[in-house]
Design a binder for these strands. Structure first.
Lengths: 140, 140
DNA sequence: TTAAAACCATACTGGATTACTCAGGATTAG
DNA sequence: CTAATCCTGAGTAATCCAGTATGGTTTTAA
């Protein structure tokens, strides 16, 4: 049940952008330095965040990245799903997963399945209920 | 945020034992066959469950495995923790994890950290609140 | 006593995934 | 022009996972 480093870095970087929401575009190099993340690795992560519509970018000198929406409109679940795909404990209860992904053949009368669904929904509901703004408000 | 196959198989096997709680010791071969899991792999999993005190075993012809406690006394969190270690989204908020495991240097003033703690507790509370008996009651 | 059934332990392995790095191209402000 | 910045795709070393392989030991029915 571990989060990938992509997800972890992505959330940290998004918090960074949220903290500087009024400052315009923030260059990636600064985020990488402050957050102590490999810049090239962060570039990959930001490419995904951008394709997912969570951030927007400006190229060239004075360019950088900024949130695509205000901090109260972006939740943690969005970030993690964009970077890591559907949030689910096992493939067979994922939206994208088919029954072929099910390690137990039965699919239907599978008691465990009910558990995975509960767990999946529980995690998603929590992560969808926490926005970047919520996290900024936690500060001290 | 995926569960390991160990955890998944472990939960399935424990449900199997719970369903047959009154039948005495169940041989591993039967569980492996019914649940369609490699017997050798299941043996590894059961060794961990036994060391963790969740099941007990009898050797010899007529031997097998049984729950160490009644189904209402064993929760899903116990099973997964025995098989996969602490349930935590990132190492740095795990009981066993030190600050060295923290990918962000700051440990303290880390906004993301509060999030990981919330997520960790949320998941553990859910999984600790569901016993094997609860799952049996879900049937139909 | 013996052999089968079952548990027990450890080492190994092939494949997948992860977490990056490398190299270079495209864009734009000054 | 040029320096700063975004952008892209390929490559790679290491790790982890899932499952095998091998070879026990213990118990009990017959």
């Amino acid at each position: 049940m571990r989060l990938s480093s992509r997800g972890e870095y992505g959330v940290r970087a998004m918090i960074h952008l949220a903290l500087n929401y009024n400052e315009g575009f923030i260059p990636l190099s600064r985020i990488a330095a402050v957050e102590d993340i490999s810049q090239q690795y962060l570039e990959q992560i930001f490419a995904n965040l951008r394709r997912g519509g969570l951030i927007r970018s400006n190229r060239g000198v004075k360019g950088g990245y900024a949130l695509a929406s205000p901090p109260q409109a972006i939740c943690v679940g969005d970030i993690i799903r964009v970077l890591d795909g559907p949030i689910t404990p096992v493939n067979c209860v994922s939206d994208e997963g088919s029954d072929d992904d099910c390690r137990c053949g039965k699919s239907d009368d599978c008691l465990a399945r009910s558990l995975w669904i509960k767990l999946r929904d529980h995690i998603n509901q929590l992560l969808d209920g926490i926005t970047l703004q919520d996290m900024l408000n936690w500060k001290y």
